[in-house]
Amino acid sequence: MSRRAMLWCAAGLLVAILYPLLFGGPSLIARSNYAINVAFLILFAAFLGQSWNIAGGYAGQTSFGHVVFFGTGAYVSTILHVSHGWNPWLAWPVAIASGGLVGAIIGVLSFRAGLRGSYFALITLAFAEVFRIVANSIPQTRGGLGILIKADQRPENFQFRDPMWFYYLALVLCVIGLAIAWWLTRSRFGARLAAIRENEDAAMALGIDVFREKVRVLALSGAMCAAGGTVYAQKYLYLDPSIAFGVEKSVEMLLVSMIGGAGTIFGPLIGSGVLHLVGEITRDLGNVVPGIKNAQPLALIVYGLILVVIVAYLPDGLTGLLRRRR
């Protein structure tokens, strides 16, 4: 990292840390939990996107079913908390480990079979479906009834009255995600992954244990994603199989990374920022158009078009734009 880039990072982090002061508690500008909440959503989606990016971007193992890790994390901590009386903070590491374990298992199975590219992508989708159907059918998850986490808004209970704390939590996760991505650009592990991404056969010829590296990266990615699952459950206090294992979340993770630029450190964050802002602004658009009944779908039409336009004019993702500018 250049000194200039480092300076920017430090400045950005400082702004991020101070951000709630503008809108939150002391509120230097105007108290706005909405602004905090949108920032939370951006950071949170960026973190989940980063977990996808670690496997999908850096190691080239594109997945369509990343939600399987998210849902595993969410369910493991929630079941331990609600049915077994664990403190959610203690359940969190278990959830993270479970996500890593599921990642390792899926990795061992699929990579042993030699699955690559879209075959791997589709098998992850199938795993997510299996998990969703199981969650819908077994008593431990209460099936389709879902699990309601009792609201008890105390920090020691992993629940916060002020949304600012969830923002900070997401910020910490996001920074950890960025640090892991940064580490991948500098470490031998990351270099081996890059070699695998560029040409798996060549990587093997170089003596890289491709299978082991891929399983490891999927376990890492799964653990990260599962960490997000617990946070989601604790924030929204309700979980059901389609929330936990629905295909939309998988798509969102892939979308923020790819739009931002897969395989780049800041890709998921930029992608998440842009997509959420576009989403928030277009959602209002539906109410501005006068005289049209049910204009809300127009908002999503605009959103979809913007997506196409971004790809059309920025084929390397939004980070590609920055690189070109320099």
Binding site: A11, G12, L13, A16, I42, L269, G273, L277
Partner: peptide
């Protein structure tokens, strides 16, 4: 959020634009 973009070396222009 938009402010955070500056952290990863976005040009000043897009930082202001985002904000």
């Amino acid at each position: 959020m938009a402010r955070k973009q500056s952290r990863f070396g976005v040009s000043r222009r897009s930082f202001v634009g985002g904000a």
